[in-house]
Design a protein around this nucleic acid. Structure first.
Length: 467
DNA sequence: ATGTGC
């Protein structure tokens, strides 16, 4: 056993001497070289397990101290307690989501945050979490479906003039659902976003271009939907008279393109912070002034524009089939990060399942497949970093929903609310969501409700278990 | 959420 074997394992400076003397002790006790090297490797991997006592205790203690020092040096130590942040609808939020937000507010890059009333546990940052950081972006603070968004088209047709059968056949013919789905080559629509030079700015975007071009205008799976419904406008607004309108509401994201961008940069961020406190591992960030951070920012924003383009084409296709031009439209992203002034300082505001709600800004907050959704106008509340909930929020996880609910429950709920469903799954049952009326009531200081949308004919992907 | 890996 000599220093060469030790340094090969990655020990440095004082650790080399400590490892060597521990190795000598083990050799003296009759241990073989490979055995000792394996032990040293284990000590390096998990020093905390060896620091309590034994021949490797001194080495382990030294490694722990070095790790801690490096963690501080790299700025990866978490603050002991979270920065203060406000919570809307605390009575509706499970403790796990609060705990995740607490961890996020302990990051050294965090400056401000808020939790929306639809909050529930997610990967890293909770869904319904709003997090403002300084000069850094967290891929898992945006989420896997980058640019996931909502769009509403108000149509120049009376709600009663489109039959359920017509609505069904339009949705079946002109929308596409499911993981991996793309439009048939002859059916593809073009969009300005596909002609951006951004696709050529980094290899990953170039590699994903064909997939993006094939999938644009499609709807994916999970909680994504396209639906016809009745919009009730309480007072004249958005250029329309008060009254009832037929409308299309869609929820969709950046499909496979965004998912792969998210996966790639999550890995990059993870590698950038190998020593990040375990509680915050999924909140690994990328400094915006570094190449990787700038690349993510560029790709994220492209995925955001792509997701909105996706909605554009979904609505355009249906409008074309109906031979009409929408009277009014509204849209918003709810999984994205923005540069925003917070108390006079430019910060990176992540909204992961949160609707931008700047003063006067329109937003869409859907309920469930059978519950109303709302067209809202933001109040620009600074305590919420000008945000609102992005929906009702889950009350039951997907597995819990499948275990607790059955198709009869869902069918009865649909019937009671006069909703016809194409596709759908038990994990998307209305009963798996919080009551949207409660969630809206908890954020009256964040948004004003302009109009209520009641779904009538809804298309979703076929879920894990039919309803 | 994606269409893939634990």
């Amino acid at each position: 056993m000599n220093g060469k074997h030790i340094t090969k394992l990655g020990f440095e400076n004082k650790a080399i001497g400590l490892a060597l003397s521990a190795a000598n002790v083990r050799e003296g006790a009759g241990a073989g070289r490979n055995e000792i090297l394996a032990e040293l490797k284990a000590v390096k991997g998990h020093p905390q397990a060896y620091a309590v006592g034994g021949v490797y205790a001194e080495l382990a203690a030294h490694l722990l101290a070095e790790n801690a020092k490096n963690a501080v040096k790299k700025g990866v130590a978490l603050h002991e307690s979270p920065l203060p942040y406000r919570v809307w609808g605390e009575d509706l939020i499970e403790p796990g989501a609060r705990a995740q937000m607490d961890v996020a507010m302990r990051l050294p890059i965090s400056r401000d945050g808020a939790l929306m009333p639809d909050a529930h546990v997610g990967y890293g940052l909770p869904i319904g979490g709003v997090l403002a950081t300084e000069n850094a972006v967290i891929p898992y603070g945006v989420g896997v479906d980058i640019g996931c968004s909502m769009m509403l088209s108000v149509l120049p047709i009376k709600a009663t003039d489109l039959s359920v059968d017509e609505a069904k056949s339009l949705l079946l013919k002109h929308t596409r659902f499911g993981a991996g789905v793309a439009f048939e080559k002859r059916e593809r629509d073009d969009h300005a976003v596909l002609h951006e030079q951004t696709w050529k700015s980094q290899p990953i975007l170039g590699h994903l271009y064909d997939k993006a071009a094939a999938q644009i205008g499609t709807s994916g799976s999970g909680n994504h939907f396209v639906e016809f419904g009745t919009l009730t406008l309480h007072q004249p607004d958005v250029g329309l008279e008060a009254g009832e309108y037929l409308a299309i509401l869609s929820h969709s994201g950046s499909r496979g393109f965004g998912a792969q961008v998210a996966g790639h940069f999550t890995g990059v961020a993870h590698k950038r912070h190998p020593n990040l406190d375990k509680a915050a591992q999924k909140l690994a960030w990328l400094p915006l002034e570094e190449e990787d951070g700038a690349a993510y920012w560029e790709a994220m924003n492209l995925a955001g524009r792509y997701a909105l383009a996706n909605h554009d084409l979904i609505h355009a296709r249906l409008a074309r089939a109906l031979k009409i031009t929408p009277l009014a439209q509204a849209r918003n992203s709810h999984n994205l990060a923005w540069k925003q002034l917070v108390n006079g300082q430019e910060l990176i505001v992540h909204r992961k399942g949160a609707t931008p709600a700047g003063a006067g800004q329109l937003g869409l907050i859907p309920g469930s497949m059978a519950d109303p959704g709302y067209l809202v106008r933001g109040r620009g509340n600074p305590d919420a970093l000008a945000s609102a909930s992005h929906g009702a929020g889950r009350q039951l996880g997907r597995k819990a929903a499948a275990n607790t609910l059955n198709r009869k429950d869902v069918q009865a709920y649909l019937k009671q609310h006069g909703v016809t469903l194409i596709g759908g799954g038990i994990d998307e049952a209305p009963q798996a969501y919080k009551r949207i009326q409660d969630v809206i009531a908890r954020q009256s200081d964040l948004v004003d409700v302009i109009a209520e949308f009641r779904p009538r004919v809804v298309r979703m992907d076929t879920g894990s278990e039919d309803v």
